[in-house]
């Protein structure tokens, strides 16, 4: 038998009086590391990290599917409304999920829109999480919404159309199996979910003015960005670095828009120093308290 050690379960998360039956996977023990998937995808993006023995011997890695994504169904009544992810709901849901699992100041890590929301969560709930790791994070990017119409158009097969966008964001150096794995994850996205997520990423998220507030907790803010992602070039992360005094920015020449999926080894090269820094900070904090 060759059974992976990942456990998948459902937890009921309540937000604004609505119940969300939420799928999550986890593996490992130690400090909780909660992972947020990209727009239009789900927690399967973190499968490599969830089975990385070096990581899971030190961290309880947890990845969940946002409602409407993966195995987390939309709530009852979804058929009467257009799906549009808002900043308010996204932040509330992340905090509610963490509390529902009873996690104590977990490390929060998210990619793309999950990396964008890191700045929103850090601003509104700085003390609920031990550290914030934004992968391919941006402060503001309205252009994502430019293609949303065609992902909803009855004469366009959105499942096929998305493949080109996703392929363009992956490094040419990624192994073909990893590249096509990401494309497949996106091609099975439910109708309207990717443009619904773009509503948050392109319209509702704008953290350009958060600099003064986030600078106060910058020792707990980390930004990892791959050079092959045309939505997150150095000019984009430079603006964040200039705005948030003290944020740690790690740029990788080997990564693109989906670091945890496209090249798990290169991702570890970027992530390990960040986790080491967080651990060091935790030790220093414990020593100070004693």
């Amino acid at each position: 038998m060759n059974i992976e050690p990942i456990t998948g379960r459902y937890i009921h998360v309540a937000v604004d009086g609505r119940n969300y039956r939420t799928y999550f996977e986890e593996n490992g023990q130690g400090e909780p590391l909660v992972c947020l998937h990209t727009a239009g995808a789900d927690s399967i993006e973190f499968r490599h990290l969830l089975t990385d023995a070096e990581i899971t011997e030190r961290y309880r890695v947890i990845a969940f599917d946002m409602p409407w994504h993966g195995r987390s169904l939309p709530p009852d009544g979804w058929w009467e409304e257009e799906y549009r992810l808002t900043r308010e709901f996204y932040v509330k849901f992340i905090v509610a999920f963490s509390r529902a699992l009873g996690l104590d100041k977990p490390i929060l890590m998210g990619c793309s829109m999950g990396g964008y929301v890191m700045f929103d969560v850090a601003r509104q709930h700085p003390d609920d999480f031990g550290a914030f790791i934004s992968l391919q994070g941006r402060d503001y990017e309205p252009a994502w919404d430019g293609l949303s119409k065609w992902y909803r158009h009855p004469e366009v097969n959105a499942n096929a159309m998305v493949q080109s966008l996703i392929a363009s964001l992956i490094p040419a150096t990624a192994a073909p199996a990893r590249r096509h794995e990401i494309e497949w994850i996106y091609m099975r996205c439910a109708p309207g979910v990717l443009p619904g997520d773009f509503h948050y990423a392109a319209v509702d998220h704008d953290s350009r003015s958060y600099g003064p507030e986030l600078s106060r907790i910058a020792d707990r803010l980390y930004l990892i960005a791959g050079d092959w992602d045309w939505s997150c070039f150095a000019e984009h992360t430079d603006r964040i670095r200039q705005s948030i005094n003290g944020i740690t920015v790690v740029r990788s020449p080997d990564l693109g828009h989906f670091p945890m999926s496209e090249d798990p080894v290169a991702f570890r090269r970027a992530l390990d120093p960040v986790l080491a820094k967080i651990a060091e900070r935790g030790k220093a904090g414990n020593a100070a308290r004693q």
């Binding site: 080109s164 392929a167 363009s168 490094p171 092959w228 045309w230």
Partner: peptide
């Protein structure tokens, strides 16, 4: 990174 794909 800037000439990776027609879409980009």
């Amino acid at each position: 990174p800037t000439t990776n794909h027609p879409m980009s």
